[in-house]
Design a binder for these strands. Structure first.
Lengths: 189, 189
DNA sequence: ACATTAAACTAACACTTGTTAGTTTGGAGA
DNA sequence: TCTCCAAACTAACAAGTGTTAGTTTAATGT
């Protein structure tokens, strides 16, 4: 673990507050107080409130994109790909619970980067859906509605940020394993 | 369908805006503009912004509580109870997609009613979990982790508000049926 | 024709918002 | 000891916030 820069400290503190109250309800004075400084001092490190939100969300979104790119190109079964997607979510979320809250709840407050974010999200969902469809075609999975399968998996995975912090004794592998049972065995053939 | 009062119109319009941008980011002037009037005029019908949020969230939360009370007391299998919970969510969400967004995302901005809301939510989750545990004991379901099962089901069901509006040709029964396949067959014995 | 009333209006309030400008502080390296 | 610089500070801004007070409008029932 390398030491955080002051800017990173601010962004991480902001992510925590955004998780609790949401981007719009957190003021720069709230953030400053949480850092133990005055609001104006924040601007020695960041250029705007918006920049903080962007830093939080885009970093995670791109992490998901990179993970998905590796998974789709892997030479493994579609069921295995789904299991890797579960692991991807568990890992990213475990490392950044607070940021995941912003990604889920405050993406619409992105300004300049909104379009880019939506493009990443769209591509991600399309790749996800395609894996499920291929799995059904290859007879690896039951003939359920692929969109509902994806919806169910994705909403569960996206909500992990709410749940992981409650489990202090979290073992990422155990959780991924448990989720696989619940999410995937149901559709497995 | 009885005609809406002016107050109900305001609350429904607010719910729509809250869904798009969240409670904190919607101003009374935004709401007034959406109604085609001036902000001050809203106060002929409502007493505060907070009252609107409360009206939206508490009404739905109590609806869930009433539904759950009926389900837990029914003389049916635990699997059947889970299927009824799925139907409960589909029905409430289909009738109030906008309100469900506030329930999910803006409950923390409740002031006087926050404690009451949390109590309702807690009771609901405890009842839900108990059904799953009983189902496992009665050997109706696989021996998976009950908390993960509940978490997975509940987050999917809570996120329905995001998904139902996209399916214009929605048939509530079909959707409930599909969800049952994906959510319940996986844990069924 | 008149009184009533729901529902709009204008004007203003006290306070909070994100942000800028310019200044001070205190520790590290020369 | 002096210089430098990151990082804090005070003071202030223009705009936006929820809300209030008091007034006008237009339709309804008598």
């Amino acid at each position: 673990m390398k030491a955080e820069t002051r800017k990173e400290e601010i962004i991480n503190t902001a992510a925590k507050l955004f998780k609790e109250r949401g981007y719009s309800a957190v003021t720069m004075r709230d953030l400053a107080t949480a850092m133990g400084i005055k609001a104006a001092s924040l601007y020695n490190h960041i250029t705007s409130k918006q920049e903080i939100l962007k830093a939080i969300i885009i970093a995670i979104a791109e992490e998901f994109t990179r993970g998905m790119d590796i998974i789709i190109n892997a030479k493994i079964s579609n069921i295995s790909k789904l299991k890797q997607i579960v692991a991807l979510h568990v890992n990213i979320t475990a490392n950044n619970t607070n940021g995941m809250a912003s990604l889920n709840n405050d993406w619409m407050h992105l300004e300049d980067q909104l379009e880019y974010y939506l493009q990443l999200r769209n591509d991600y969902e399309n790749n996800f859906l395609e894996i499920i469809k291929q799995g059904i075609i290859a007879n690896e999975m039951k003939q359920s509605n692929p969109e509902i399968i994806m919806f169910s998996m994705l909403t569960t995975l996206r909500s992990l940020y709410l749940w992981i912090p409650k489990k202090e004794d979290l073992n990422a592998n155990d959780l991924a394993q448990n989720l696989n049972e619940v999410l995937i065995e149901g559709i497995n053939n």
